[in-house]
Design a protein around this nucleic acid. Structure first.
Length: 855
RNA sequence: GCCGGCGUGGUGAAACGGUAGACACAGGGGACUUAAAAUCCCUAGGCCCAACGGCCGUGCCGGUUCGAGUCCGGCCGCCGGCACCA
């Protein structure tokens, strides 16, 4: 009697069974002797309170990997936790008068309940939230270790300051020059901030990222670009005449084009250069110029449109290679203080920015690189700088050299003259981690007038956040708390002041993987790390992943981590987003997918019956209302369907479009699998597979399918694995009409249940139970593939004539090439194309193809 | 501007240099049913043909090869990252 599979009753039952048997608890190394380890980790979520489809996709992928590894005999660590500090909790506190901690922990509870419904094979015993005092206390200890080692320091720097919220903003929180929350014009302020010395590892971070073979090429390139290594020359231009105070040696500049030094026609300082500031003290005109430069916004758009602004200081410096030749010193708005030395030499002929500047202010343009084939007498640069290849000319001792040779020669000469040296510069800046916020990890230091900056003693950690804080006025609640910051100096005992800044929340997520591996045991950390497979969104390609790579190195170097490579994530996979169509009513408001209906291929608003405008397919977002609630999907179709669908249609790295019909298709497939299993006799045992042709063919299909699913999972081609499962089930269903295949079908059902575990674990368990198998299929091993059933005795070859397919032949796998050729030529449809022509040659690729070449 | 990636049916997509479009969604036709749902079967790149069959076809142009969606060169388009980084 055919029954329907009911996920609503089956799914909770299996989740209870898994929990009761505690089968996803991680085994410590001693419990799994001889088993290879697999640390499978998905980027842990921010506890916003609601799970979204993107989470489902991310965690479904991780679960496929974790469950597959377990079935293949690995000792698996698959933990989950919460990235729990951050602004949304403070916003909630301001808007709803709830304490950020209360809000966060309540969100964790409700999200955890949603998580559990997905049937993920997670070890919850290792769960933590980064806002747990135990976690941030350990982080504070780590901070102090890095501080001792010199990897953390304080310095004054320019920051984005929101004058309404009274806080520093990260660059990405500044939109068109305004604070993202307050809308206030952001000011550049000089503040003393804490920094992590990520630049100390710039070279290693760059070299090593290229060697991470199991990382996407895209992410490796993005990190390499972010680090932005450039080789060049740092040299000093000495002043002609009296040098300004403090610049007796001259102006240091950095260049990657020392080969073009003879084409130098000006030196330009950044408006923020110390010399500029010094000169501005005595010049109102320069003061005004600096103010004008500061007005130009920092947004991309503003920079793009920014006019070149220049100010002639009247000073001149000496050309390094040509005695007597002088070069004017300007201040130019396009020179950044944050890169190199904050000063450049301009070679307008071979740099577009320099050329734009020179043309605007009437400075000289001296071409010194001659393009291949160009005439030295006639070559000129107009409005476009020449940056291509060529050889150097009009350049004294560099004449005739290639660009590369000239770079080396120029650097050698400058070094020999003691005017500078070859240098590598990075775009990467040290990581500013101070935030004027409450809901973050307190920076564990105390400021003492006598002793300076003093670390909080180990015994006093964690430095806990005070509970009694107010959010009714802007600014940092820690700073205005009546008592919290007033402490005595641990050194001298005199009244001192606690640091009231907290750490950037990216710090919290920079080492959580190590905490998952073990809270305290260094040996267990060494056992599990690095993470074998890390999975998350590509939006973290630079920040989180770079910070983590820095942190694991820093932890290694202070003796906290036995990880010689310093690389935390051996394998990385960045998954695509979940998208959905968007809908707009006639009135122009966004409509939720549940508010529309389809009739005859047209879309209408249910409430009004009016037609709906179907918009672009976009990332699910609240503002466009094109979200689908995972809870609702799980309630309607079950978790297995949600998991199956988000993995089925598109390759995992690409976006997948959620569609109602797709989800229904997945639900149909669940029933199809069940109907196949449920059609087997209820009383076992099943007969062994028979050896008739139909049974053998079916067995071959099963064993081939298992091999191909296995490979596809390992290669992160989940959509291909799912396609193979479809094909396999279609084949199994077809065999139902032949009673002789019962044994082969029963074998197939056993293998199918095991193969479904990573994707649809609840259904897999129900099938397993129906088949009368002992225990839980979640603990069963991956099906063994019989190699003899994977290879065919006969193969079908396409037969081509001149590369065009004309027919096909089925021959024994090991038939001699000559016989294959004869069989191919004997085909009538082939013969007609050969007739009357001479056969030039025949290519026989065993198991693949025959190609007959005729003239 | 620089650096990546990607262009294949109505749609999402498959395809060690070897039968392009597997698998799925949507569609068309049919069976079962009073009807619907569910299920099952057939069909499905374009053009020509009654049919057998043929020709064309993986963004465009060219090349390498017995054979190219796949490799090489040059264009075009889309997406992502970085961007006055000297």
């Amino acid at each position: 009697m055919a029954t329907r599979y009911d996920p609503q009753s089956a799914e909770p039952r299996w989740r209870e069974a898994w929990e009761k048997a505690d089968i996803f608890r991680t085994k410590v190394p001693a419990e799994a002797p001889g088993a290879p380890k697999a640390f499978v980790l998905e980027m842990f979520p921010y506890p916003s309170g609601r799970l979204h489809m993107g989470h489902v996709r991310n965690y479904a992928m991780g679960d496929v990997v974790a469950r597959h590894k377990r079935a293949k005999g690995y000792n698996v660590l698959h933990p989950m936790g919460w990235d729990a500090f951050g602004m949304p909790a403070e916003n909630a506190a301001m808007e709803r008068k709830v304490h950020p901690g209360k809000w966060t922990y309540a969100n964790i509870e409700s999200m955890k309940a949603q998580f559990r419904k997905l049937g993920l094979s997670l070890d919850w015993s290792r769960e933590f939230a980064t806002c747990d005092p135990e976690y941030y206390g350990a982080q504070q200890a780590l901070f102090l270790k890095l501080f001792e080692k010199g990897l953390v320091y304080r310095k004054a720097s320019k920051v984005n300051w929101d004058p309404v919220d009274n806080t520093v903003l990260a660059n990405e929180q500044v939109i068109d020059g305004r604070g993202w929350r307050s809308g206030a014009l952001v000011e550049q302020r000089e503040l003393t901030q804490w920094f992590f010395k990520i630049t100390a590892y710039a070279d290693d971070l760059l070299d090593a990222v290229q060697k991470l073979e199991r990382w996407p090429e895209k992410v490796r390139t993005m990190q390499a670009n972010w680090i932005g290594r450039s080789e060049g020359l740092e040299m000093t231009f000495a002043f002609e005449g009296a040098a300004p105070a403090g610049f007796e040696k001259g102006i240091p500049v950095f260049t990657t084009r020392p080969d073009t030094l003879f084409g130098a026609s000006f030196v330009a300082l950044s408006p923020d250069h110390p010399l500029t500031i010094q000169l501005a003290e005595k010049s109102d005109a320069l003061k005004a110029f600096r103010a004008k430069c500061a007005q130009v916004g920092t947004s991309e758009e503003a920079i793009e449109k920014a006019e070149k602004l220049g100010f002639d200081t009247g000073l001149t410096v000496a050309h390094p290679f040509e005695p007597g030749r002088t070069v004017p010193v300007w201040v130019a708005n396009f020179v950044l203080m944050g890169y190199g030395t904050g000063a450049i030499f301009g070679c307008p002929a071979h740099d577009q920015r320099d050329l734009d500047f020179a043309r605007k202010f009437g400075l000289d343009v001296f071409p010194v690189v001659l393009p291949p084939g160009a005439d030295a007498g006639a070559f000129e640069v107009g409005t476009e700088a020449y940056t291509g290849p060529g050889h150097i000319y009009k350049s004294g001792f560099l004449d005739g050299l290639s660009i590369e040779d000239a770079k080396r020669a120029a650097i050698a000469k400058i070094e020999a003259d003691g005017q500078g040296e070859g240098k590598v510069n990075y775009r990467l800046r040290d990581w500013g981690v101070s935030r004027q916020r409450y809901w973050g990890c307190p920076i564990p230091v105390i400021h003492c007038e006598e002793c300076g900056v003093v670390g909080v003693p180990q015994a006093d950690l964690p430095v806990r956040l005070p509970e009694d804080v107010t959010f009714d006025v802007p600014g940092n609640p820690l700073d205005r708390h009546p008592t919290w910051k007033h402490v005595n100096c641990p050194n001298c005992g005199k009244p001192a002041r606690r640091e009231t800044d907290t750490l950037d929340t990216f710090v919290d997520s920079s080492w959580y993987y190590a905490r998952f591996a073990s809270a305290t045991d260094p040996a267990e950390r060494a056992y599990w790390l690095p993470v074998d497979q890390y999975i998350g969104g590509v939006e973290h390609a630079v920040l989180h992943l770079l910070y983590s790579r820095f942190f694991s190195r820093a932890m290694r170097d202070v003796g906290e981590l036995d990880l010689p490579s310093g690389e935390p994530f051996a394998g990385l996979f960045t998954q695509g987003m979940v998208t959905h169509e968007t809908y707009k009513s006639e009135a122009g408001t966004w409509l939720e997918p549940s508010a529309i209906e389809r009739k005859d291929g047209k879309v209408f608003e249910i409430a009004t019956g009016k037609p709906v405008k179907v918009g672009a397919i976009e990332k699910m977002s609240k503002s466009k209302k094109n979200t689908v609630d995972p809870d609702a999907i799980v309630a309607t179709y079950g978790a297995d369907v949600a998991r199956w669908f988000v993995l089925s249609d598109s390759p995992p790295e690409r976006d997948v479009e959620w569609t109602q019909s797709g989800a229904e298709g997945a639900a149909r497939f669940v029933q199809r699998v069940w109907s196949f299993v449920d059609a087997l006799p209820e009383t076992g045992p099943f007969p062994a597979p028979a050896s008739d042709d139909a049974s053998t063919a079916l067995r071959k299909a099963s064993h081939k399918a298992v091999a191909s699913i296995d490979k596809a999972i390992e290669e992160f081609r989940f959509n291909s694995a799912i396609a193979t499962v479809h094909e396999w089930v279609n084949t199994l269903k077809k065999a139902e009409s032949d009673p002789a295949t019962l044994g082969a079908r029963a074998e197939g059902a056993d293998m199918l249940a095991r193969c479904l575990v990573p994707f649809m674990p609840h259904l897999a368990e129900t099938c397993w139970e129906r088949l009368g198998k002992p225990g839980l299929v979640s603990q069963a091993s991956w099906p063994e593939v019989d190699a003899s059933l994977v290879v065919d005795d006969n193969v079908t070859l396409a037969v081509q004539v001149n590369g065009k397919r004309r027919g096909e032949i089925t021959v024994a796998k090991d038939m001699a090439a000559g016989d294959v050729e004869a069989a191919a030529r004997a085909l009538p449809e082939v013969a007609s194309f050969i007739e009357g022509k001479s056969v030039k040659k025949t290519i026989v690729v065993p198991g693949r193809i025959v190609n007959i070449v005729v003239a």
